[in-house]
Design a protein around this nucleic acid. Sequence first.
DNA 1: TACTTTGGACTGACCGGTCAGTCCAAAGAG
DNA 2: CTCTTTGGACTGACCGGTCAGTCCAAAGTA
Lengths: 209, 209
Amino acid sequence: MTSARTPSRSRGATRDKLFQAAVTLIAEQGFSSTTVEEIAERAGVAKGTVYYNFTSKTELFEELLRHGVELLTADLRDAAGQVAGGGGTRVDALDAMIRAGLRFIDHYPAFTQLYVAELWRTNRAWNDTLMVVRKQAVAVVEDVLRAGVAEGELSEDIDIQLTAAALVGMVLVAALDWKAFQPERSLEDVHGALSLLLQGRVGGRGRSR
Amino acid sequence: MTSARTPSRSRGATRDKLFQAAVTLIAEQGFSSTTVEEIAERAGVAKGTVYYNFTSKTELFEELLRHGVELLTADLRDAAGQVAGGGGTRVDALDAMIRAGLRFIDHYPAFTQLYVAELWRTNRAWNDTLMVVRKQAVAVVEDVLRAGVAEGELSEDIDIQLTAAALVGMVLVAALDWKAFQPERSLEDVHGALSLLLQGRVGGRGRSR
DNA sequence: TACTTTGGACTGACCGGTCAGTCCAAAGAG
DNA sequence: CTCTTTGGACTGACCGGTCAGTCCAAAGTA
């Protein structure tokens, strides 16, 4: 049964398989050294199918980016929202977002890799897509910072934009290092280390319990 | 004199021109979408000259990486050493390293871009070079953290490796964002924002004023 | 002085291979 | 019948690497 009245159930499945295949391949080798045939092969479909589902290699990649960042921002927003709903502080919300970020990277390391690798390139065909998508992700962090400042919980001296970027960078690089160089450690472990940094117990005024 | 028989002075100059040309092109477009001919053209030499000076495109890139990271680690070490010599704390040394990092990125944005983009790729020809070079850079930060813990200035709870990675990431991403999205701001400005984070006055025990 | 030789630096046309994208006849599937 | 996929042949552009040959300043020679 499962009467699929939807015009393209199987089509969506094929696209997913292609995303899946492309993301790991491109993370490993980069966009331009990954061939369309490789992607098709790993996805278990014919090359022609790739072009039936996407108009070009570039378009496949752009949709991949959009898709991935949507997942991420949804996760982050959820994490922040849950804390806010539970009556936590803004710092708690940031902390929750760090955990959510780590969880995401844990789940989709290849996507993260690929995102970082492409983010600061200029002159690429998909630059516009990338800018939009970046703004989306960073904005979630900025919103929480802004709310914290507005409520007097965070110092007014902080620079929202730069601090958000720095926090994202902190999580990104630490997580990528975790995955690449000490993958045996637990997420909680990594989260603890970053939490310490966020809460200023590394360089902060000394006394830490 | 000026050595007539030696490998020559002009050769070194040509190599420099090629480095210069390659670093910006690869930062913009990535390694594999940058052609050897483009590099040669921008350097103002013929394609053959590239192969006279380097055995392959890959080797040119690897030497570029080594060269750049050497400059960076030297800067970082200097910064930390100066503070230590001047009787500053370890946190001061970290702060000085942040400034040195920013100065480096300010000076060589293209190299930084390219480094970040390649760092977490696997399966690349130059992976070994990259690993060595990364360890070199992060080790400088780790050393300062370790010293701080040993002297009781920093909490024993901190995870040296992860914290170092996080700090590097913080500076890297914040700086890249600075250059890409708000290049008009001053280095001092950016440094101030990161300093605040390092010293825990963002998420720290709240009341910091 | 006038010549020849040497050899390092550089050149650019060329070759062989690779790859994105096209096309199409035929086969499942709903 | 329509939508989707297959699989493979084909094209045209592009690109890494090669190589025979040019250029020239310094050294050698007489």
